[in-house]
């Protein structure tokens, strides 16, 4: 009995067991899901892909570290969320971009978009998307210089860059010459991580299997893009497999912080992303609209959530 008296027992609120999941594991899963796309990026765009990704991830992590230090808050670089932002930003940059712009974008993503609003969970738009749009508006010409895969193997290494138009730009100008197979495996000009559809779909499968994301948003996003393309007399396959639809719908629009938490909200959000994307693609000046679409829907998320709040069990709606 004396033994019992000396027991130091922990008293806390129920439940007393936990699933064992944590934020770090989720972010690691997202990074793992991005690995196939990263490998293909290296194959297609060579050392420039490696360098840009490293620069973005490095800058994001360092800025998060400094930010949290300056703000005297607990350190959060260990949860890998800054690394995910870095990879996603790098994947949505053109391969030949000057790394200084990448540094600027990363600092903007972490300092302005994420930490100034309170850090992880508090940003009202996706940091990587916001940073890409920021660069796109500030440096339009640098952000739209595309090069074909394997450009780094070509003989005229002195000029370094062979400019090409992306399939989307060619849809806008009325001619598509890339085959479905080329689009599927990513043999086209575009951002570092967005070209290989196969690799991105592998990542999608992994995220679904690990239950990191639910399929509603990506499927509604892709479905809407395909339907609108069909209705407007364009090729839905080309629209789905070019530009940032795959990368955006699988990895960016599903960012927990900036998408609705309930199922009905997710469906509306996904459809909204598709509608805005296609509106910009068909009627806009810019050939691509995924980033703007996600950014806009991010901002609408709180309102979608309020409108779609499910009725509690046993309460008549």
């Amino acid at each position: 009995m004396d033994n019992n008296k000396s027991l130091r027992l922990l008293v806390s609120s129920s439940p007393h067991i936990h699933s064992g999941e944590n934020t770090t594991v989720i972010m690691q899963d997202v990074l793992i899901a991005l690995v196939p796309a990263a490998l293909m990026a290296v194959v297609y765009f060579g050392w420039r892909a490696v360098m840009l990704t490293a620069v973005c991830v490095g800058t994001c992590v360092v800025s998060e570290y400094i930010c949290r230090r300056v703000m005297r808050r607990s350190q959060t670089i260990g949860d890998f969320s800054a690394a995910v932002t870095g990879v996603l930003l790098a994947f949505s940059l053109p391969p030949t971009l000057n790394p200084l712009y990448a540094v600027l974008g990363s600092v903007f993503a972490i300092v302005v978009v994420k930490q100034m609003f309170g850090g992880i969970g508090m940003n009202f738009v996706n940091p990587a998307i916001a940073a890409r749009v920021f660069l796109l508006i500030s440096f339009p010409s640098q952000m739209s210089r595309w090069s074909m895969p394997f450009f780094y193997l070509s003989n005229n290494a002195g000029t370094d860059v062979v400019s090409t138009a992306t399939p989307l730009a060619r849809i806008a100008s009325g001619s598509v010459d890339t085959s479905y197979m080329d689009l599927f495996i990513g043999m086209r000009g575009g951002c570092i991580g967005e070209t290989c559809v196969l690799a991105l779909l592998l990542g999608f499968g992994y995220l679904l299997v690990r239950r990191v994301i639910t399929p509603e948003i990506p499927l509604c996003f892709m479905g809407t893009v395909a339907v609108i393309a069909l209705l407007s007399g364009q090729n839905p396959m080309v629209h789905l497999m070019s530009g940032g639809v795959m990368l955006g719908s699988i990895f960016m629009s599903t960012d927990y912080v900036t998408c609705p938490v309930n199922r009905a909200g997710k469906i509306i959000y996904g459809i909204g992303c598709g509608v805005v994307t296609m509106t910009i693609r068909i009627f806009g000046v810019s050939p691509e609209g995924v980033s703007y679409a996600i950014l806009l829907m991010n901002i609408l998320t709180p309102h979608i959530e309020t409108l779609t709040l499910s009725a509690p069990f046993g309460k008549e709606a």
């Binding site: 934020t23 969320s81 969970g121 927990y256 938490v261 309930n262």
Partner: peptide
């Protein structure tokens, strides 16, 4: 840690 709004609690 900070809530990441993953929505697991909702489902």
């Amino acid at each position: 840690t900070d809530c990441i709004r993953c929505g697991r609690c909702v489902s």
